[in-house]
Design a protein around this nucleic acid. Structure first.
Lengths: 110, 110
DNA sequence: TTTATTTGACGCAAATATACGTCAAATATT
DNA sequence: AATATTTGACGTATATTTGCGTCAAATAAA
């Protein structure tokens, strides 16, 4: 990258793009789905659920954790993960805003 | 990639991830925004709007076109772009579904 | 204490994404 | 006809993502 990436676009746009990027892989979507459904949310259980190595799954978990969508709680040698309520709410608002912005009748080409 | 990517996850998950990926760059979000607001939607006008070279913008436009969110209409030497109504509606439904799936009270960690 | 589990950090290779210059084709303008 | 504009295809360089094996640390089990 030649230029400072973060300066090229406004902050809102950058942040929204990052949110979408966090959701842009089926493994990460599956992890979120699993956490939304599951009773237990141990790292190992999540790995077992996905057709990827534990290491790779761990990396996806890390990404979701870094963006704040999930959180981990150490429980002995294990780590329990779950959806982070606040961030999920934030995500919902962002998605709704995005949808609303596209809600126009400006389809000039058709 | 060692394995066949498309077989690892179910089709819905893959397709949704692809949609999110299309939205995972500020330039592409800006293009959608611009098309939603703009009267004119000529390729050149879009490039002028973004802090990237025309070539790069063109590439982002191509991605959005390939996933079906926008469509182009040749008008002499120019090309007019606009949001593709049907796909935008589809996107809205997908986002809403995604939101609904996360709408749980299963926050075990907190 | 010794051995087994579970986890995350680290490093590496391959695949993709991003950014951009150049070029040729098509159309407009002169 | 000659020149200018607009566009997309192509090639290329760099950055990032993805996937995974190995390893050490922490805890649990024997």
């Amino acid at each position: 990258m030649v230029q400072a990436k973060s300066d090229l676009f406004n902050a809102d746009l950058n942040e929204r793009a990052m949110l979408f990027k966090a959701l842009a892989h089926p493994a990460r979507l599956r992890i979120l789905q699993f956490l939304a459904e599951s009773e237990s949310c141990i790292t190992g259980d999540i790995s077992d659920e996905l057709p990827l190595s534990r290491t790779t799954v761990n990396q996806h978990i890390k990404e979701l954790k870094e963006i704040g969508l999930i959180q981990g709680q150490i429980d002995g040698v294990r780590t329990k993960y779950c959806l982070c309520k606040d961030k999920v709410e934030e995500l919902k608002v962002a998605l709704q805003e995005f949808i609303d912005n596209l809600d126009i009748n400006n389809y000039k080409c058709k």
